[in-house]
Amino acid sequence: MNNIALYEERPVIFDFQNKSVETLSLDTLKRTHKENDINGHPLTGIYHYQVVEQVAELCALNGLNFQIEEIFAAQNRNRQTPGVVILPQVESVFGEKAIEAHVLRRIFTTIKINDQETPDINTTIAIAYHQDGIQIAIGPNVKICHNQCILSPSRTVSNYGNKKVTTEEMFHTVNDWLNNFSDYRINDLRILEQMKQINCTLNDTYQLIGLLTSMRVAKDSSNKKLSKCVNSYPLNQSQISTFTENCLIAYQEKQILSLWDVYNIATELYKPGRTEIPNLIPQNLSLINTLTNYYNLD
């Protein structure tokens, strides 16, 4: 069954003054104000909702059982290009804080694929649309906690940054993932199983925390030689503190965790409201790259 989000649409208005993140459906996203250039075309070449629709269409064309999940919109308080802008002239028509008066520039959602799912794991396509551009990634999703796994650079694509492609090429890449869905799925589950077989003592995790902290310090350093050594760190300092605390709590219950357990404690932080939307996919990818190198994952 191919579906758009099944939950009931709740919000009548948005309130970004009191909330940093709002949730909405695709239909509601389409009602928000469309940001155009002087010729009346999408300012970034494509509207946010069109990205979601095109990925969903590719899922359907490849015969997959999918569902568009809830969509997150976030404010970022940037004076130059804020994540949310409210247009007073549109409010005067539709009412105060009306959905139609909002320009939303930071959007994140996932499309769930249930094909070849296990009791614990299905697959999700993550979509991040923001001021820098568009990022899309695919990987296993842990059902119980909705933790997105991105297990290889080949599972991500974007139309900005050092490895940017055109928007059209980006959708071609997504279609390739879906056309080869079974092969990608089998390989991803093999990596997850390998992680489950690797034991991590508390001391092992202390060493990992030290590595994550060193990467964060290097990336944020004013020393350019240091900062260039790290493209994107897995966790910022606040997240490292939360990760460390959650690991310590987990070790109170078990003397040894698997690498899969530790990985899930970290990926719990990669959600809107806990990580800035432009960083959700890059940090997630940086984490698996770090673990792959540290633990010699295949």
Rank of each mutant, 00 (worst) to 15 (best):
N2G: 04
N2P: 00
N3Y: 11
A5N: 12
L6P: 01
E9H: 02
E9C: 07
V12S: 10
I13G: 00
I13F: 06
F14M: 09
T23V: 10
L29A: 03
L29G: 03
K30H: 04
R31A: 12
H41Q: 13
P42Y: 02
P42I: 03
G45A: 01
Y47F: 15
Q54T: 13
V55G: 04
E57N: 15
C59N: 13
N62W: 08
N62G: 12
N62H: 13
Q67M: 09
I68M: 07
F72H: 14
F72G: 06
A74P: 00
Q75P: 00
N76W: 01
R77L: 10
R77P: 00
R79W: 02
P82R: 09
L87K: 06
Q89H: 14
E91I: 11
S92Y: 12
E96D: 13
E100H: 12
R105Q: 11
R105T: 11
F108C: 11
T109Y: 09
N114D: 15
Q116F: 14
T118H: 10
I121W: 11
I127Q: 14
A128E: 01
H130L: 01
H130S: 03
D132Q: 11
I134P: 04
Q135G: 02
I136C: 08
I138D: 05
G139W: 03
P140A: 08
P140C: 12
N141I: 08
N141S: 07
V142T: 15
S154R: 15
S154P: 07
R155F: 10
T166Y: 09
E169T: 15
E169R: 12
T173E: 14
D176C: 04
N180H: 11
S182Q: 08
Y184K: 03
I186H: 12
N187E: 15
D188V: 01
L189S: 09
L192C: 05
E193D: 10
Q194I: 05
K196N: 11
Q197W: 02
I198L: 05
L202A: 05
L208N: 07
I209D: 08
G210R: 12
L212V: 11
S214I: 09
R216I: 00
R216L: 05
V217Y: 11
A218R: 15
N223W: 09
K224E: 10
S227G: 13
K228S: 13
Y233A: 04
Y233I: 00
P234C: 01
L235A: 02
S238K: 06
S241T: 08
T244Q: 06
E245N: 13
C247S: 14
A250K: 11
A250I: 06
K254R: 15
D261C: 14
A266M: 03
G273F: 01
G273E: 07
R274D: 07
R274K: 12
L280K: 01
P282W: 00
Q283T: 00
L287H: 05
L291P: 07
L291E: 07
Y294P: 00
Y295V: 02
Y295L: 02
